[in-house]
Design a protein around this nucleic acid. Structure first.
Lengths: 244, 244
DNA sequence: ACAAAAGTGTTGACTATACACCCATGG
DNA sequence: CCATGGGTGTATAGTCAACACTTTTGT
């Protein structure tokens, strides 16, 4: 999308937005991608955007995900609509106003009216789970910065965005088994421990390794490969791969 | 809401609607409330409406449910957003145009512009389950009629409304146990067979009566009352009631 | 030989389901 | 006393978590 059109009221459905809870996984930790707004006081939010007239809501969500992460073809799913009366973007708008001059210099805001952003917004929540190592987060003009935050140490987010994360996490935990393949966040080959640690991060609890292995193998989606010799003084674990 | 405002663009969020899948239950049958549009060709739809600026999306859904059924305080839940590109209300709009004269006579359309309805709409799906016997369905001005249709014999509905019913039914079937009390569609006192028939209607399959009884009683939400003598030549079943 | 971690096997609790049986009721 | 449907009990299979044990690896 051309940058000039990003804040042009005429390009988008009014009062409707998409917010993405982008879960990131690496090294046994579950994190969430959180931009920080350009404001004097510290304010954090979720990556979001608006829906263009000629795109579906799923397309809008995928576009926003790609803009912030560069990732395409990621399993992305709506989990809830947030439509309370108090839902206004005034903080994001303030953030925009702070850098208004800068944006006008770049020619982005030239003739634009931003008042449409003041209205109450209904927002569709989507979530995704990605491999942190495959992502270089991209901030937007009105973000001061963007970073991964551990799910247990999230800052206070604007409006109801913390609540959004809660709902998204609940949705992620439902039937993780069936979505495992869709999220491609495990390397091509991996050990059972890798899968275990992923589950432990998502569910925030420990699983018994032997029972866990039985459960996962019973899903019949993995094929066992050769052993992985790490040089450690213990039995070498098998490598696995998703069946084609 | 004043009737004059029903089609006034200024009262509503643009391009966003709410559609309700209202399941009705009576005599072992699961039905869906389906209005028929006022058109030369037969077209059916789902009860829907728009979201006022000063109401939450949940409030809008409750309002629509009450308008069509007269019921308040019913368990009502969003289950999915539908946001494909092809979603336009042109059939509903045609229906309105057909009775435009009539509406203007009533003073409802006097100065109104209906073109906002031509645009592509995103719709939030809600479902509810109600007792058919407690409802006298109310049609709107642009509906020719409104009626209960057995879920297995639904006519073809406009746009993606049949798909909406499918998603709603899947959502209804999830954790029916926990929602049973919320829907007040069983009489004050009822037999275990009444509950059984309700479940069989919702899940569209038979359950073994003895095992079913165990399962339901294990939920610990029912209290057993006296027996119900029907005059039939068999053992009299117990009556049950939801615990306070 | 030993520690560390992987892998396998076994047990007991719980749940779901099928089957068998007894009981109350009115004709 | 019999047909009908309600209610209870038991056996079986399957699932899940806890525990014990064996195997492999490099030092």
């Amino acid at each position: 999308m051309e940058r000039m059109k990003i804040f042009d009221k005429n390009n988008f459905i009014q009062q409707l937005s998409v917010d993405c809870v982008i879960f990131g996984y690496a090294n046994g930790e579950l994190k969430v991608l959180v931009p920080k707004l350009s404001l004097k006081q510290a304010h954090w939010c979720l990556p979001g955007g608006f829906i263009m007239h000629e795109e579906s809501i799923d397309h809008a969500a995928r576009r926003i995900l790609e803009e912030r992460t560069g990732l395409k073809d990621i399993f992305l799913q709506q989990f809830r609509v947030f439509g309370g009366l108090e839902r206004s973007n005034h903080l994001m708008l303030e953030s925009l106003k702070m850098i208004e001059g800068e944006l006008r210099d770049k020619g982005i805001l030239e003739t634009l009216d931003l008042d449409w952003l003041y209205k109450r917004f209904v927002s569709i929540g989507y979530y995704a789970l990605v491999d942190i190592n495959k992502v270089v987060p991209q901030k937007t003009d009105f973000h001061e910065s963007i970073a991964w935050y551990n799910i247990k140490e999230l800052p206070q987010l604007i409006i109801d965005h913390n609540e959004m994360v809660d709902y998204a996490l609940a949705a992620l935990r439902q039937n993780l088994d069936e979505k495992l393949i869709g999220f491609n966040l495990l390397p091509d080959t991996f050990t059972m421990r890798d899968v275990l640690e992923l589950y432990e991060a998502v569910y925030d609890k420990r699983f018994a390794p032997n029972n866990f292995q039985k459960k996962i193998l019973d899903l019949n989606v993995l094929e066992r490969l050769e052993k992985k010799f790490t040089g450690a003084a213990n039995k070498a674990p098998y490598l696995y791969r998703f069946k084609k």
